[in-house]
Amino acid sequence: MDSSPPPGPKPTAAQGRRMRSASRFYAVQALFQMEAADVGLDTVLREFETHRMGAEIDGVAYAEADLDHFRRLLNATVSEQARIDQLTHRGLVARWPIDRIDPTLRALFRAAGAELVATDTPPKVTITEFVDVAKAFYPEGKESKFVNAVLDHMAREARPDAFA
């Protein structure tokens, strides 16, 4: 059974960017949920696709997302997690094990790492977008600077050709 939405009008470029941004935000939430609730990929994909994306819950409207990008990020995170965690570990200035950082940040680094290693999205776009996701989760602002620094290091290692 295909859970893809029925074909409709193609989104404008701006709508496509907003939908891709939403897919990044949802990917961080889904990865956090997978770890916190100890649920598998299929379970979290089904829940987000059926009950969150584009839904209204308790009077809050959730954004439509680029479903393909959301799936790509989650699948790549699961299949490339060891590589992504190594990139993250090397990007952490304090050399803390990834297990010791905040679970939301860990989910964010994994989703961003998946985008860096499994898509052709320009690294600077990935960094900017995930810094914005960090700002949504941590409005105080200090975490976004930390995220920017770690993702820059990860991107330079994962995609050095993009910085030449």
Rank of each mutant, 00 (worst) to 15 (best):
Q33I: 11
Q15H: 05
Y62F: 14
E64M: 14
V44S: 06
G59C: 04
A118D: 14
L108W: 02
V28E: 08
I98V: 15
E49N: 07
Y62M: 14
A82W: 05
I127N: 02
S21M: 08
G141C: 04
H69L: 13
P97G: 12
L151I: 06
Q15I: 02
D42Y: 04
L151N: 03
A158S: 12
A111N: 11
Y62H: 15
N148M: 06
I127E: 04
L108P: 03
P9L: 10
N75C: 12
I101R: 01
M34P: 12
I127P: 01
A112N: 07
V125F: 09
A111T: 09
N75R: 13
T104M: 11
V133E: 04
L31G: 00
P123R: 02
A65R: 07
P122D: 14
G113Y: 10
F25T: 12
L92C: 07
H69Q: 11
W96E: 15
D42S: 14
L31W: 01
F70G: 08
T126N: 04
D132H: 08
R156Q: 15
A30Q: 07
I127L: 06
Y26R: 09
K135Q: 15
T104F: 05
L92H: 03
Q29T: 08
P139E: 09
Y62L: 14
E47C: 02
G59E: 07
R156T: 01
A63Y: 01
Y26D: 07
I101G: 01
E80R: 13
R24S: 15
P160K: 05
R159C: 08
D68W: 01
G40F: 03
T12Y: 06
S79N: 13
L151S: 02
G91E: 00
P97I: 00
S23G: 13
R159Y: 05
I84C: 08
A158N: 03
Q81L: 06
W96D: 11
H153D: 15
T119W: 03
H51Y: 12
R17M: 09
A134Y: 04
R46W: 12
I98E: 11
A36F: 10
M154T: 00
A158Q: 06
F130E: 05
M154I: 01
R18Y: 05
E80G: 11
N75V: 04
A65D: 12
F48T: 01
A136D: 13
T12K: 07
